[in-house]
Each structure stands twice: as structure tokens, then as C-alpha cells.
């Protein structure tokens, strides 16, 4: 099936009736996935939005429970359940794969995060193949394809005046059905696209998992210029660390969780004051090992870096993960310093 581009807004209106529709928007200069109808401009040509769509499933701040107390007794305790249907329209292959990675974390290995899982159940994803790449894009080096996101519910491909529309799951079929009045017969193959930035992950994960790497000089050298801000973690589509805190007023209150960053000193500080990651060396090491080694080790699903290039583009000091991958790749053996 295909959707003429001049019917895009009609399609949005149709989807927005069924669910909270998130589309790429530019709002106050920031590109992100925002509700259709929000004040701002549609940004379909933002190859990569500045902010990833992860907050649709994992909001930066999310209320979890609310409670009331009476003296020392709990009067009521209620889980806050968000059950709104959501559609992310225009998600790219890199961000789509980031959702696959977060699914592993929040839904497998014996624990299902109910807040995430409810949102995931109610989410439909419409991926769109890229027609151009940014100088910082390297998703194909991380095993992805910029024009195809196999796990998305619907795959769109830009073919000039129209999008080729392909349902890939049951949810996707339902959505295509909804859009049927606007769709035309037809099909088309997307032109292949290659990233200009290439990294070679061959052997990198294995080297990093080698115990000798942990005390390598490479960490100090790499981390020296880090200023310890959270930009990389907050623009990253797969950084999922959070903190839980409470807010109380009188005899009622709520618990919330909010994004946290392993780049912050407070993140690992223990109750007694000890900090097992006392400096930026340990923090950068943890972040890069998590992205490039630990995730594959635990889940066997490749790297937690999806190659979106946001951290490369936005790091204030150009601490570039792709240059780090090259550096590790070039090491003669794990733990050596050249």
C-alpha cells in the first residue's frame, strides 16, 4: 500500500483520534517526538530528532504510586497506571532498535516492569526509512539498516511523493486498516542507504570484556576531557537508568521515578558516603562498557549503542564513542596500551 504525502496530515488526524499520536516536531528550536497538534512545526526531515523518543515508554519523570497516611497507618496506596494508547510516527531504525533493547531490560530476565510494560502494550510504532544520513550517523556499523526497522509495527519508506506502507505486525495491520481510506494500491522498494561514518565493532566487545581491559590506561586517557555532564545519557535512546524518590505534602504524597545519569557523581554515592566510582575515569568506563560490552554479555543481543550518533553530535567536549571504538579495535590485544 502507499500513502500520498499530501494526505499525511489527514492520516495524522485519523490516528490522533485513536491514540496519543507522537510525531517529530520542532518546538522552541528542539526537535523531538511530541503530540500531533502541539505548538511547533512538523519536522519530518529531522533525520534524527535531538531528543530520542524513549520518553514515550520511559518518561523523564514518571509518577508511580500515590498514598495517603493517617498517623502511622497507610490509609490508601494506589499504583498510577497509564493506559493511554500511543502511536510513535516517524521513528527511525536506530530509535526503533533502542526500544528492542529497552524491552530486554524492562521485560525479560525474570522481572517485568509494569510501568514500562503497560506503555509498551499500548504502543504502536510507525518507522520511516531514512533518505539521508547525518555525518554522525553510524547505525549500519552497529548492525542496523537505515531504511528498514524489522521490529516496527509499520514500516514506511519515502518514495518521493508518497510513502510505501507495510504492516509488519498485527498491531501494524490494525493501524494500516485504520488508514485504509487514505491509502492507495501500490508498492515500491526503498533505495539502499549507507552511513558515511563507519566504525568496526569486530572483536571490540570481546576485548572490552577481557578483565585486563578494566585497569587499562585507555580509560584515563579517554575520560580526561569529560566534564561529567549528563548530555550523552539524556540524548541517548538506550540509556535507561533511573532514580526513585518521593514527594510528600501533609498526609499525602507520591513516589516517582526520573532519569538518572551514570555520569553524575551522586549516581553511585552510597548512603554512608562512599563512592565506588569516584572520578570521571570510572564513570566513563562504566558507560562505555555498558554500551559496548555488558549489554551483549547479559542479553546476547548485540551492542547497547544503536549508532544514532546523538552523543557524538551533542557532547560539549567531543568525547566521541566512535573514536573510542576505533581505538579499542586498534589495540594489539586487550589491556595493552598501544
Amino acid at each position: 500500500m502507499k500513502l500520498a504525502k499530501n494526505k499525511l496530515q489527514q492520516a495524522f488526524d485519523l490516528m490522533a483520534k485513536e491514540a496519543n499520536l507522537l510525531v517529530p516536531m520542532k518546538i522552541e528550536g528542539v526537535t523531538k517526538f511530541a503530540p500531533w497538534g502541539a505548538e511547533g512545526e512538523l519536522a519530518m526531515d529531522a533525520v534524527n530528532t535531538l531528543l530520542p523518543p524513549k520518553d514515550a515508554l520511559f518518561p523523564q519523570t514518571e509518577k508511580m504510586y500515590k498514598y495517603k497516611t493517617r498517623l502511622t497507618q497507610v490509609e490508601s496506596l494506589e499504583e498510577i497506571k497509564e493506559t493511554d494508547k500511543q502511536i510513535i510516527f516517524g521513528i527511525r531504525s536506530c530509535d526503533m532498535h533502542s526500544i528492542d533493547c529497552m524491552d530486554e531490560v524492562f521485560l525479560t530476565r525474570g522481572y517485568v516492569d509494569s510501568f514500562y510494560s503497560r506503555k509498551k502494550e499500548n504502543l504502536t510504532t510507525v518507522a520511516i526509512g531514512c533518505t539521508k544520513v547525518l555525518p554522525t550517523c553510524f547505525c549500519d556499523s552497529m548492525g542496523l539498516n537505515p531504511v528498514a526497522a524489522p521490529t516496527a509495527d509499520v514500516q514506511l519508506n519515502d518514495l518521493g511523493d508518497y510513502y510505501a506502507v507495510k504492516a509488519q505486525t498485527e498491531k501494524g495491520e490494525a493501524l494500516v486498516n485504520l488508514l485504509k481510506p487514505l491509502l492507495e494500491e501500490g508498492d515500491g522498494e526503498a533505495a539502499a542507504l549507507e552511513c558515511t561514518l563507519k566504525v568496526n565493532m569486530d572483536g571490540v566487545q570481546k576485548k572490552l570484556m577481557n578483565v585486563k581491559m578494566f585497569e587499562s590506561d585507555i580509560w584515563q586517557e579517554t575520560a580526561q576531557k569529560c566534564i561529567g555532564c549528563g548530555t550523552c545519557t539524556y540524548v541517548c535512546p538506550t540509556c535507561y537508568c533511573f532514580d526513585i524518590e518521593g514527594k510528600e505534602c501533609g498526609n499525602e504524597g507520591y513516589k516517582f521515578r526520573c532519569w538518572d545519569s551514570c555520569m553524575f557523581s551522586e549516581y553511585t554515592r552510597m548512603a554512608g558516603g562512599h563512592n565506588p566510582r569516584p572520578s570521571k575515569k570510572e564513570r566513563v568506563r562504566n558507560r562505555f562498557l555498558h554500551k559496548l560490552a555488558y549489554f551483549e554479555d547479559r542479553y546476547g543481543k548485540g551492542s547497547l549503542c544503536v549508532g544514532c550518533g546523538r552523543c557524538v553530535a551533542d557532547c560539549p567536549v567531543d568525547l566521541d564513542i566512535t573514536m573510542f571504538i576505533d581505538k579499542v579495535g586498534a589495540l594489539k590485544e586487550a589491556g595493552s596500551n598501544d
Binding site: E28, Q60, C229, T231, P316
Partner: peptide
């Protein structure tokens, strides 16, 4: 208000 609605609290401004 519009400006601070955008802030992601990465603290890059502070750290630099």
C-alpha cells in the same frame, strides 16, 4: 517558562 520546559537537566551549563 517555555525555555525551562525544554531543560533536560543534564547540567552541562554547570559543569562547563
Amino acid at each position: 517558562a517555555k525555555q525551562y520546559d525544554k531543560c533536560i537537566r543534564c547540567y552541562a551549563c554547570r559543569n562547563v
